[in-house]
């Protein structure tokens, strides 16, 4: 939903945009309505343009999906098949090699046969979920307070919160490594959970504030007039920001799940996560590409599923709320 905090006239704005969407045709460029366009670009030219556009979008989709395709198929190919390439320039041979092979699950079995990969998976889940829950619980109350409160230094507080989120991961790792070493937290899951919270908590506050801003204060007010306390009123409006909460949980999980640096430096063997384990397959006794691809699939698949579930909020989250959907 598009909101306009400046005027508070969300519904009107959304309405205007919906109207515009109706007018917008299926034509080239941010152009005018269809009838106006026809006067400028006539039939044949626009058909050629249409073909060019479709071709470009098609090529872009292929460029985006080919690495996924090769990762997935290589994870199911026997090692000799995955490593074989046709002679240079033999495009026909390439096509048959890309699409025709007898699938095997040997790489997946190899991964889990070591008995450790399940543990890495569990570590990833625990670290990501714990950090997401902490961030959302603390983030919800703080976001509510920032959305509703007016106090001196609010802008500075804002800036501090968002700049924490934007800090370079390695720069944060240096002092955290020293601190966690002093507290004997290195190579434990709590160290990772705290480290992920450095980025997830400001993110949760920042995004959830946007969601609270779009809930009218009058709703809480009505509850408070009815004799509910402010805490109860906050509790009552939680359902209204529930989609935001779900989106933030998923995005926090995504950030923690995909992290490499923190886990590589502070996780050690005891708190090894999937990305570190996948990279680790490279240095251990030669490069096991088949297993790396299988590990990649195991690492990426859950996030793809989650991402599709909250597709609507993905862009908003990835842009720190700069883009509202």
């Amino acid at each position: 939903m598009t909101t306009n905090p400046r005027t508070g006239t969300r519904d009107d704005v959304t309405q205007v945009q919906d109207d515009r969407a109706d007018v917008r045709g299926d034509d080239l460029l941010p152009g005018p309505a269809v009838d106006a366009r026809d006067q400028v670009v006539r039939g044949r030219g626009s058909r050629i343009a249409g073909v060019v556009i479709t071709a470009f979008l098609g090529l872009y989709v292929i460029w985006t999906l080919v690495p996924f395709y090769i990762m997935i198929t290589s994870s199911f190919k026997a090692s000799d098949a995955a490593f074989a390439l046709p002679p240079e320039g033999d495009w026909g041979g390439a096509v048959s090699q890309l699409f025709v092979f007898s699938p095997t699950t040997e790489h997946y079995r190899g991964l889990f046969a070591q008995g450790e990969f399940e543990r890495y998976f569990t570590n990833s889940v625990v670290a990501a979920v714990a950090s997401a829950v902490i961030s959302v619980v603390f983030g919800t109350t703080a976001a509510y307070a920032i959305s509703r409160g007016r106090f001196r230094g609010k802008r500075d507080l804002y800036f501090w919160i968002i700049s924490t989120r934007m800090a370079p991961v390695v720069a944060v790792t240096v002092p955290l490594y020293a601190i966690f070493k002093n507290f004997a937290l290195l190579n434990t899951l709590p160290a990772l959970i705290l480290a992920y919270t450095v980025f997830n908590l400001p993110f949760a506050i920042w995004i959830l504030k946007g969601f609270f801003d779009s809930v009218s204060y009058e709703i809480e007010e009505a509850y408070m007039v009815d004799g509910h306390s402010r805490w109860q009123a906050l509790w009552k409006i939680i359902p209204l920001v529930a989609p935001g909460l779900a989106a933030v949980v998923v995005l926090c999980i995504l950030l923690a799940w995909n992290d490499f640096i923190f886990a590589a430096v502070m996780g050690g063997e005891a708190a090894k996560t999937l990305p570190v384990a996948t990279q680790g397959l490279k240095s251990a006794s030669g490069i096991e590409w088949g297993q790396i691809m299988a590990a990649g699939v195991v690492t990426v698949a859950p996030m793809l599923l989650l991402g599709i579930v909250i597709r609507k909020y993905m862009v908003q989250g990835l842009t720190m709320g700069a883009v509202k959907q």
Partner: peptide
């Protein structure tokens, strides 16, 4: 949206391949 869901280190390994 799909590439953005991929752990960057996995993306790096995939492209190295």
């Amino acid at each position: 949206l799909m590439p953005m869901m991929m752990a960057p280190v996995v993306a790096g390994l995939l492209w190295q391949y």
